[in-house]
Computed example of a mutant assay.
Amino acid sequence: MEEMRFDGRVAVITGAGRGLGRAYALLLAARGARVVVNDLGGAIRGDLDAPGADVSVAQSVVDEIVAAGGEAIANTDSVATPEGGKAIVQAALDQWGRIDVLVHNAGNVRYGSIRALSGADLHAVLDVHLLGAFHVVQAAFGPMCDAGYGRIVLTSSVGGLYGNENCVNYGISKSAMLGLSNIAALEGEAHDVKCNVIVPGAVTRMAEGLDISQYPPMEPELVAPVVGWLAHESCPVTGEMIASMAGRVARMFVAETEGVYRPHWTIEDVAAASDAFHDKAKLHDFGLHGHVDHIGYSFRMATAGADA
Rank of each mutant, 00 (worst) to 15 (best):
T238S: 15
A304E: 15
A139G: 09
R300Y: 00
T204E: 04
D39Q: 05
V158D: 10
P200S: 05
H129E: 07
E258W: 12
E240D: 14
Y149G: 10
D77G: 01
D275L: 09
A231T: 09
A231E: 11
L122Q: 03
T76F: 00
A116S: 15
N164D: 09
W265M: 07
P51N: 08
M177N: 03
R9I: 01
Y162F: 14
A176Y: 07
V168Y: 03
A33F: 07
A133C: 12
L131K: 13
G247A: 10
D49G: 01
I114D: 02
L130C: 10
I198R: 05
A43D: 13
T257K: 02
L27Q: 14
V61E: 02
V109F: 12
D47R: 13
C167I: 09
D94W: 02
H289R: 15
A11D: 10
A68M: 03
D192P: 01
Y170G: 06
V136F: 09
A74Q: 02
L102E: 03
I88D: 03
G150N: 09
V37G: 02
G112V: 07
G159N: 14
I114K: 00
L27G: 06
R45T: 15
A246E: 10
V12C: 12
A176T: 08
M252C: 01
L288K: 07
A30Q: 14
A273R: 01
M177P: 07
G119Q: 12
A302T: 03
D279L: 07
G228H: 10
V128F: 05
A74Y: 02
A246H: 05
A250G: 05
S234M: 06
D54G: 05
V137W: 03
Q90N: 13
V226Q: 04
H294R: 15
S156D: 08
V223N: 01
H291P: 00
A184T: 09
E219Y: 07
M241F: 03
G132R: 10
A106H: 08
L131W: 15
I65H: 04
E64G: 00
R98W: 02
I152E: 04
V137H: 04
E219T: 14
V254Q: 11
V57L: 06
S175F: 07
V66S: 03
A184R: 04
M301S: 12
A68F: 02
G132Y: 06
C145D: 00
L230I: 14
A133H: 02
A255E: 09
V137A: 10
D293F: 04
G19N: 05
G8A: 10
R5F: 02
D192L: 04
G239H: 11
K174V: 09
G52R: 06
A124T: 11
Y111W: 11
V270M: 13
V203L: 14
G179E: 08
V136A: 05
Y162H: 13
I267E: 13
G46N: 08
R31S: 10
A243S: 15
A58I: 05
F286A: 04
V55I: 13
Y297K: 11
E233G: 12
A120C: 00
L126P: 03
G19I: 07
A29Y: 05
A147G: 09
P143T: 02
V79C: 11
T204G: 05
G247W: 10
E3C: 01
A33H: 08
P143K: 02
F6S: 10
W265H: 10
V227T: 12
F253Y: 13
L178R: 11
